[in-house]
Simulated scan of single mutants.
Amino acid sequence: MSAPNPRRALTLIELLVVIAIIGVLVGILLPAVQAAREAARRMSCSNNFKQIGVAIHNYHAAYNKLPMQIGGTFHPRDNATYAGANRNRATNQFNLGFLVGLTPYLEQQSLWEQISNPYAFDVDGETVISPAWPAMGPEPSEPTYGPWSREIPTLRCPSDPGTGLPSLGRTNYAACYGDSTDWVETGYWRWDGGSSGWISDVLQATRANGSCRGVFVPRKFTAFKDVQDGLSNTIACGEIATDLGDRDVRTTPHLFTGWGPVGVHSNPRVCQPDRDPNRPRFWSVGFTNIGAPENRRGYSWANGGPLYSGFNTTLPPNNEICLGADHSSGGHAPASSRHAGGVHVLMTDGAVKFVSESIEAGDDTAPVVTSANAGRPSPYGLWGSLGTRASHEVIKEEF
């Protein structure tokens, strides 16, 4: 009887072949796994937006109006008493965003209770302070007021890695101001630098009526009845990326400090020359007019300013932010995201759609609509038309 053959081991060449095959398979499968993860994050982002859409409709059902973008509490006359830090602590300075009013409808009832009542704790939620914060909170950039620093999961896109200081609580979802830059930071009220404080008059109403053409009008309540172009044809909210401290043109504002005739109102591309020609996603290394590091895109969910929780449809998605003065001013604040190729938008009927960054956007160097030329069609093509609530433009294309 012959002895059994000894077990044959793998040769070095065979082992290398096996390792090479495994490497090839990993190389093939890894991008697919990463793509699947991003697809899941994108779906989660869409679901967050759907929840915000449901919250907006529930709010409207309760109050027959939409929550105000840039609103809140203020002392309209007594500027001397409420100067400086005292003024910022006593009221929220008429600067709250629409997301604050939605908190009870986003399963954040406890947070709403803290905001809507006097709140006697420091940012740590434990240290008792006196006097207590007022109902509806202080100015939304106040870092020691706990509710403004709260991270609300529904307001965050899973694809956006931004977190922590120097921001407060972040948001990836913003209100649509329409297709203009004129008066979108003040709307129906304006600040009189003298003794009058915040005032609303015929002049300001005329300005805002002509240029604030989106679903959300700063410092004025709007309702579904105002959306005459149809709820399914009009964008209510859009996605925004939050800043990572890397001078990204989508999230780091260019403070152009000029409105017209060669400024922000006259040409949406006025800030484009300061982009790095070799890395156009970022501002040039030598460009420094970007303001303080705490004033960046999406850095304060409670702040209604265009930089923080608003956007307009003048420039296509994922283009540069170009403001007319400082971080609190209006300007071109496009939608943006960390998803490849586009952004989510929430239509006013509650539908969520993904819009390509190459959407037809007309003449992106055309002057914006103002009260001087009110009523004209949007110069920014399909994208601009989707941002207006009552311009009577027919939407003929899929997007």
Rank of each mutant, 00 (worst) to 15 (best):
V24G: 13
M68S: 11
D326G: 15
P138M: 03
I19Q: 14
Q114S: 13
L25Y: 02
V123S: 08
P218S: 07
T81S: 14
A61Y: 09
Q272E: 14
I21A: 14
P131L: 10
V345R: 05
Q228V: 06
T154R: 00
A366L: 00
N58F: 02
T186K: 03
V26Y: 06
A340C: 04
A55F: 06
A20V: 10
P138K: 05
N172C: 10
W191P: 03
E142C: 01
S167Q: 05
G101E: 09
N47R: 09
D326Y: 07
E151P: 02
E239S: 14
V343F: 10
I199S: 02
F74G: 00
W259D: 07
L168F: 04
N86Y: 08
T242S: 15
V262A: 09
A325T: 13
T171C: 02
S2E: 13
S130Y: 05
S196F: 06
V18S: 07
H75F: 09
F287L: 13
C176Y: 01
G169C: 02
L382P: 03
P147G: 03
L255D: 06
R41N: 15
D182I: 05
A374T: 07
D274L: 09
P273E: 06
V270N: 04
A40I: 14
G304F: 04
S195A: 10
S44N: 15
V184K: 02
R297Y: 03
D248H: 01
F221G: 13
P31D: 13
S44W: 03
D179P: 02
P134S: 04
L10W: 14
N373V: 12
P104E: 09
A223V: 03
L155G: 05
L12I: 10
G342C: 07
A174L: 04
E113H: 14
A340L: 10
N318V: 08
F121S: 03
D326E: 11
L382T: 15
V345I: 15
Y188K: 09
V352L: 08
P166D: 12
T388E: 13
A223T: 15
N319G: 07
H327I: 01
D201H: 11
G342T: 12
N373C: 13
D243W: 08
P4H: 15
L323F: 06
C322S: 06
P261D: 08
W133I: 01
G164M: 03
R156V: 15
S328Y: 04
C176M: 09
N48C: 15
A223R: 11
S371A: 14
R376Y: 05
A205M: 09
V264H: 02
M43F: 14
S309Q: 00
T144L: 03
E107V: 00
R42A: 13
K353R: 14
F74Y: 10
Q34M: 09
A61S: 15
V215S: 00
L12E: 12
G341A: 15
N47Y: 06
